[in-house]
Amino acid sequence: MWHQKQISVGSKSRGCHLITDDILKQLPEIKNLKVGLLHLFMQHTSAGLTLNENWDSDVRLDMADSLSRIAPEGNMYRHDAEGADDMPAHIKSSLVGASVSIPISNGALATGTWQGIWLCEFRAGRHTRRILATIQGE
């Protein structure tokens, strides 16, 4: 079985946000699979997806702070069409990545005990983000 659909994650401010529950609510098809794979693809160039800590929110804050040190805002970039956070957002998106793949086992995501899906928003303004979800399994 293959299934694909575009899902949305509500408006988020800059930072790293745990969205595992948002994803599962929009993909009830996962519950019907004994074995499979979920691929999530972020359809934007100023946000990213990753798997990381799902319990301590300080990890998300530390990650956002660290990425801001790696790609700070400032007048050092040529590309600033949408403001001072434009090019830093693209850099952070490339570093974090635009997709994750997660195994499905017995109707659930086969993540580790402390793993969750993060949406990393790199723009200052709040954005609703589109994610293309592809599910393969039986």
Rank of each mutant, 00 (worst) to 15 (best):
S99K: 13
S66G: 04
I23S: 04
W114M: 10
I131T: 07
Q43F: 13
H90V: 03
D80C: 14
N106Q: 12
L40H: 06
I30D: 01
G15Y: 11
L37H: 10
S8F: 12
I104F: 04
T111Q: 07
K12Q: 00
L51K: 03
K34D: 09
R14Q: 06
E53N: 13
D58K: 09
G36I: 14
P28F: 04
I117Q: 01
A71E: 01
V9P: 09
G107D: 00
D22S: 11
I70L: 10
I117S: 02
S105F: 13
V59G: 02
D65A: 14
M63P: 07
W118M: 03
L27G: 09
D86T: 03
S105Q: 13
N32Y: 09
C120F: 05
P88Q: 04
Q6F: 14
R69S: 07
S66A: 04
S94M: 11
T113W: 02
G97N: 11
Q4F: 12
E73Y: 06
E73R: 15
M76Q: 12
I104E: 00
I19C: 02
R78Q: 05
V96C: 08
E82L: 10
T20I: 08
Q6S: 14
G137V: 12
H79K: 10
S46M: 12
D85K: 06
D85M: 03
P88T: 03
K5V: 11
G97A: 08
K92Y: 02
I131V: 13
C120K: 08
N54W: 01
P72K: 00
Q115T: 13
I23Q: 02
D65C: 11
W114C: 07
D58M: 03
I30F: 06
N54F: 04
V35K: 09
L109N: 08
S8W: 12
Q43I: 14
L119A: 04
L132G: 02
M42P: 09
S68C: 09
V59K: 04
T20R: 06
R123T: 00
F122K: 05
D58Y: 04
Q6C: 13
I19F: 02
A71W: 00
G83Q: 09
S105I: 13
L33Q: 07
L27D: 02
N75W: 08
V96R: 11
V59Y: 03
H39T: 15
S11A: 03
E82A: 03
G10P: 08
M87A: 06
G112W: 08
